[in-house]
Design a protein around this nucleic acid. Structure first.
Length: 273
DNA sequence: AACGCGCCCTGTCCGC
DNA sequence: TGCGGACAGGGCGCGT
């Protein structure tokens, strides 16, 4: 589910609700979502720790502990992080981890498909992990020149390239397709074949669609909820994703769907070349 | 060694 | 109503 705008919304919601809270206890009903640790060690590492900061890197939600450790949550396809005082918290039917806080509330990690992962990273391990993730597309470091020089080195279809977190971090299948529509570029185009004008348009399209989606609190197709249990509002503003057969909003040509790299790609055959 | 594919898992929807 | 197949926001590990 969650791409950058969804992870950003969750992080902001949780910051408002539980930043500064202290973990009293941890239970892990589905320990297969833990990475590099077991439930016992995980609970021992976190009990008594304060959530000093809450943020995001790429599609990951990050909790910085008062002792410098970090809890990194990758939400996979169906992961949710919500607080137990959310109106619909009782509807969570696939709670994989539960963090009981000293104020009496719980932070729930619910994940139907269990593609999500939680791990604890000490400072050195975090630095190593951070270095493996690419540029933040909404940061000042993500310039049109930076995008250009990175795309020039790859023969992959540009849609696949956008999904690779080592180059640009936080873009998933929805926003990759949406950014390519805005740029007028077909998803199958080899990354290195983009003209300068096209990579510039892609740079702008990525920043635009991601910023607008953050403002709308993300896209809910089915499972996604923010940290307070609310669905995102961006879905009605998707221009190609999930619209196969429907009219292009710019030229009325039917939107096409093709599958490659084991995922669907959507595009307008007239507007995108 | 960059790249493409199968697979991990559960739920839902659609056609028969 | 039941059943099989396709499909879903991600990412790892494998073979080439």
């Amino acid at each position: 589910m969650p791409e950058l705008p969804e992870a950003e919304t969750i992080a902001a919601d949780l910051r408002d609700r539980i930043c500064g809270a202290v973990i009293r206890a941890v239970s892990v009903p589905r320990p297969d979502i833990l990475s590099g640790t077991d439930a016992r060690a995980f609970e021992g590492r976190l009990r008594g720790r304060r959530l000093a900061r809450i943020g995001r890197r790429g599609k990951n939600v990050l909790f910085e502990l008062d002792d410098g450790g970090r809890v990194l949550v990758n939400l996979g396809m169906t992961g949710r992080l919500i607080t137990s005082d959310a109106p619909n918290a009782a509807e969570m039917r696939h709670v994989a981890a539960r963090f009981a806080l000293e104020d009496g509330r719980d932070l729930l990690f619910d994940d139907t498909r269990r593609f999500g992962r939680i791990e604890v990273l000490e400072p050195d391990a975090w630095r190593a992990r951070d270095a493996l993730l690419g540029l933040e597309p909404l940061s000042a470091a993500f310039t049109a020149d930076a995008l250009r020089s990175l795309t020039r080195r790859s023969r992959s279809p540009i849609r696949n390239w956008l999904l690779d977190q080592r180059f640009v971090a936080g873009v998933g299948n929805i926003y990759a397709n949406e950014a390519l529509f805005r740029a007028g570029v077909r998803p199958r185009r080899g990354a290195r074949t983009l003209r300068r004008s096209e990579s510039d348009a892609l740079h702008g399209g990525l920043r635009e669609v991601l910023a607008r989606a953050v403002e709308a609190r993300g896209t809910t197709l089915r499972d996604y909820l923010g940290g307070g249990g609310e669905a995102g509002g961006f879905r009605p503003r998707l221009r190609v994703y999930g619209r196969a057969g429907e009219a292009c909003l710019a030229c009325a040509t039917p939107i096409k769907r093709v599958v490659f790299g084991n995922r669907s790609a959507f595009y307008c055959p007239r507007c995108q070349r």
